[in-house]
């Protein structure tokens, strides 16, 4: 039982959530321990050495080079152990090592004020070309439908579907200002910077619908920029992809044959 759930921590729904929860438990445990032992000591000092009539303070002059440094050095050693043996490897696993293409679900997330545009590559596995001048109300990401790779692409707003137990590689891009991809249940967060394509991976471990809320102030509609992540069984996910697939354009296929 993780006590932090009583203080608001939502249930975990990704593979690396356990690592992050371990870190939270460890650091909060240390905080509570240090704070209470320090406070008890402080309270003792304040009570023990309160001013009493006729008593004089001790004239003790310590340069304190050694004694005062002990707590600081203990803290330093513990922190360095934490960093070297736990933090650096786990951070590397989450943020540095990206899954190889192949057996992953690839999705583009194109954030804009104040919506999440989601683009799946479709059966061909290739994302269609996008162009700024094609952006319009009905084509928010400016997908170039003359590109063959674009014909089977699925473009949605504010709904990101992911299959359970499969690694998803998400390409984060912004069309205007800085946004932030945050799903509390996944314990993941990543700023989305215009002009950059930032990869992020997640392997969901729980079926359900979670809020996908922007976590970086992006303008007047910031608090309303909320979509959903729907985690489904791989079968349901495949069926959903099929249902969302764009209808083949009759004219162009007739011309080809």
């Amino acid at each position: 039982m993780n006590l932090l759930h009583l203080f608001g921590l939502p249930p975990a729904a990704s593979t690396y959530a356990a690592d992050i929860d371990f870190g939270l438990r460890l650091t909060f445990g240390a905080i509570v321990f240090v704070f209470f032992s320090w406070s008890v000591y402080l309270a003792y000092l304040v009570f023990r050495y309160r001013n009493k009539p006729g008593e004089r303070a001790e004239y003790e002059k310590s340069e304190g080079i050694s004694k005062a440094m002990i707590p600081g050095l203990v803290v330093l050693v513990l922190e360095m152990i934490l960093i070297i043996f736990w933090e650096i490897p786990v951070w590397g696993k989450i943020k540095e090592e990206m899954p190889k293409m192949g057996d992953v679900v690839e999705v583009n997330v194109l954030a804009q004020q104040f919506a999440w545009n989601i683009q799946y590559p479709g059966p061909d596995g290739k994302f269609g070309r996008r162009e700024q001048k094609l952006v319009s109300f009905s084509n928010p990401i400016g997908l170039d439908y003359n590109d063959p790779a674009a014909k089977d692409d699925i473009v949605l707003a504010n709904e990101l579907h992911l299959p359970l137990g499969k690694t998803a590689l998400i390409h984060l891009m912004s069309m205007d200002v800085i946004h932030d991809f945050a799903v509390p249940e996944f314990r993941i967060k990543q700023d989305i910077v215009p002009g950059m394509d930032i990869p992020l991976w997640v392997k969901p471990t729980k079926i359900g619908t979670f809020d996908l809320a922007c976590a970086q102030l992006c303008g007047f509609g910031h608090s309303l920029m909320v979509g959903h992540v729907v985690v489904q069984t791989p079968e349901d996910f495949a069926a959903w992809l099929k249902k969302e697939a764009p209808a083949p354009q009759a004219a162009s296929s007739a011309n080809n044959f």
């Binding site: 000092l45 050495y49 001013n51 303070a57 707590p71 600081g72 803290v75 922190e79």
Partner: peptide, 23 residues
Amino acid sequence: LAISVPSVILLTCLVFSLQGGSI
């Protein structure tokens, strides 16, 4: 995390200053 060390030393000195005092 390294910069927490001088801050801890400062607080430690302030707390130790109470020891033996007449507050």
